[in-house]
Amino acid sequence: MYILHPPIFKEEYGLSFGESWEIFTLKLLKIHYKTNNIKKRNPPESGIDLYFPEKKIAFQCKSIAEENGKFNYTKVQKSLEDALKIQKELGWQKFIICTNCEETGKHIEKLKKIYKDIEIYSKHFWIYICENNPEVIQNNFRKIIDVPSAYQANKFKNISKIPLEIKEIIMNKHDFFSIWLYVNQTDDLIPIDVCLDMTVEHLLNLVKGILGITSKTFIQHEEVLVSCQLYYQGIYINESDKTLADIRIKQGEVVSLDIKIELPDIIVSTLMLKDNQNLVRGYLMERKQFLLNSIHSYLKRGY
């Protein structure tokens, strides 16, 4: 399943979501029209972001970062009016809105009153192209590790560092909601069920329990210390007794996990059975594999 919104949709490095969406639609339009001749326009775009001269199609990209965001008719109308001002100069004949939202028939009807040959390529259009070209778009999306709620509740039960009253909320499935845990080093997204009464420390313990992260591990041959830090809206959450209500985390928001491994000065002569070039990454991938295997087994066996 492709979700055309952050954090699952990846923004291009250093660019806003709007700019990234424009680059993404350009890539998919080239696939759709089987051409390399659709060009991105430089500012001032005058309501036209991309132009396909051979077919005289003008494209306007309209994206909403929030998953539940609504199609903004007013902004689209403004772009169309701007585009009409340069229609003679550019020679465009068809106007297509490229949006990551769902549009309604009502919107198209209203826009057609302004200009007849108009179309909206909405969410399902893009998802269809993604589904048919997975190898082309795989780097535009973060991978989600699907952690079923039932698995999580089962895991929760066995984490001794989380108090019973918090366990009951999650296990009884009332007043809980789901947030995204973003694992920096592996670029993965994991859905996590939480409740507002949980503290940051509880959340951290839950995350460590899910990924099987202990405070010590072995990298190559030395025992090393592992620490985990959580970030919300780019800021390190260091007050572990604050609740999620205190820091105002809401449904669908992203908390980032940064796993730090303290590598001591090690001066030795070594040889390994099997090559393992990036040892820290090897550990992180092992933790990810642990979670995947554990979920797989839970789904198969029910425990």
């Binding site: 072995f218 030795v268 092992e286």
Partner: peptide
Amino acid sequence: INRFDVNGIAY
């Protein structure tokens, strides 16, 4: 050691 891929090391 408590690592879980198949590997060994001599040093």
